[in-house]
Amino acid sequence: MNAAVIGTGFIGTVHVQALRRLGVQVRGVLGSSAERGAARAAEIGVPKAYRDLDDLLGDGDVDVVHVTSPNHAHYAQVKAILKAGKHVICEKPLAMTSAESAEMVEIAKASGKVAAVCYNIRFYPLNQQAHGMVKDGHLGDIRFVTGHYHQDWLAKDDDWNWRLVAEEGGALRSVGDIGTHWVDLTSFVAGLKADAVMAELATFIPERKRPTGPVETFGRASGAAETVEITTDDAAMIMVRYPGGARGVMSTSQVNMGRKNSLQWDIAGQTASAAWDSETPDHLFVGHRDRPNEILMRDFTLMNETGTRAATLPPGHVEGFADSFFNFFRAVYTDVHSGARQDDSTWATFEDGHYEMLFCDAVILSAREGRWVSLDEIGGSA
């Protein structure tokens, strides 16, 4: 199978590297401009840089298109890809609004193609393990879901990225960019999707220095800059109500000094609890009341079937960020080869991506009006 990647920044390059490891031929990349695309294609050794989206979609040898462009471009690009008869893997968040994502769900259904959202963090093996444990009843009924996703890469007023601009990244930033990872992951592990949210958003840096030239994600700007107003959230605090009485609380931040990429979840059930930290991804905490707690080190000789299926490296050989993309793509491309998503597949669908957009729209309304907002209140349901 052959792939093409839209986007030549940090995450697009991660996609290319994981696809090569999987043995998928990357036919070409599409950059934000023909010049930028050509330069990056030459830099990473991809044979072709497409002139535009029509040029890419006209390549009959491309089976799957990876969308890693800025968020505002996902909606139009994904619709065109599916209508061209190609499978698609789209970076999160799926769209800018739940109205857009609802339409994308319907187009994906009608196309009959595999349509996945890139929530790669599901594919750290111990998150798959925890999903299997909850599904098999090892934690009992879920009661309380807590955690955070904190980073520091936008903690200074001269840190810059396109995600800061609402017109490009969406009205939510810390919630939309990294918070949706936490929302997707905990819903996957716990088997629960939120009924309602109560949210507060914070913008600690209301003005930033925007450089006149491009800045790579996680890179530092240099040269001339202009001062611009920022309306997107640096951080957020969100309480969650789940069906059946479970509750949750989470926070997001891109301004927590020293936290490079810290996603933590803690899920308390009726009979046991479990917890995981992205900065120590090969260890899963399992908590008990009446016997010693456990730390499960990723070891496929000790893991359940779901966790084992996602594990690649031998025990003690840490599987990290890049490996999660490899495990995710391996699962999706297996279904592409089969022609459809299989019953035991665990990658995020467009329906999952739409749920995250409903969650985001509910957060925006809750923060604006200072009240609990049900996801049922949000229009654009699929």
Rank of each mutant, 00 (worst) to 15 (best):
A99W: 11
W372V: 04
F123S: 09
V5W: 03
V5C: 07
K156S: 08
R241G: 13
A99I: 13
G219R: 00
W160T: 00
K79D: 05
P70L: 06
T180H: 06
G379K: 04
G170E: 09
A116F: 06
T301V: 05
D233H: 00
T306F: 01
G31C: 01
D61W: 07
D195R: 09
D54I: 11
V145E: 13
D344A: 14
L22F: 05
W372A: 11
D352V: 04
T212K: 15
N120D: 14
R21L: 12
A42M: 12
V189S: 05
I121V: 14
A116Q: 13
T280H: 14
G223K: 03
H337M: 11
F188Y: 05
G191A: 14
A224D: 15
A194V: 12
R330S: 06
N120G: 13
G191D: 12
L296M: 15
E35H: 06
A110M: 13
P314N: 03
L192E: 04
V16A: 01
D376T: 03
G245H: 03
S262L: 14
D136W: 06
G287V: 01
M257G: 06
E226R: 04
D335G: 06
Y333N: 09
V240S: 08
N71K: 09
W276F: 03
G112M: 10
E100M: 00
T8K: 01
S278E: 14
D159F: 00
L56H: 00
W347Q: 10
R259L: 08
H138T: 14
M303H: 02
V46F: 05
E369R: 12
G248N: 02
L284T: 01
D158V: 04
Q342F: 04
D136H: 10
T180C: 12
A196C: 09
F326H: 05
T301R: 13
L94F: 01
V16N: 00
A340W: 06
L19E: 09
L22M: 14
G147D: 11
K135S: 09
P281G: 05
G287D: 06
N161E: 07
M257V: 10
R330W: 07
P93H: 04
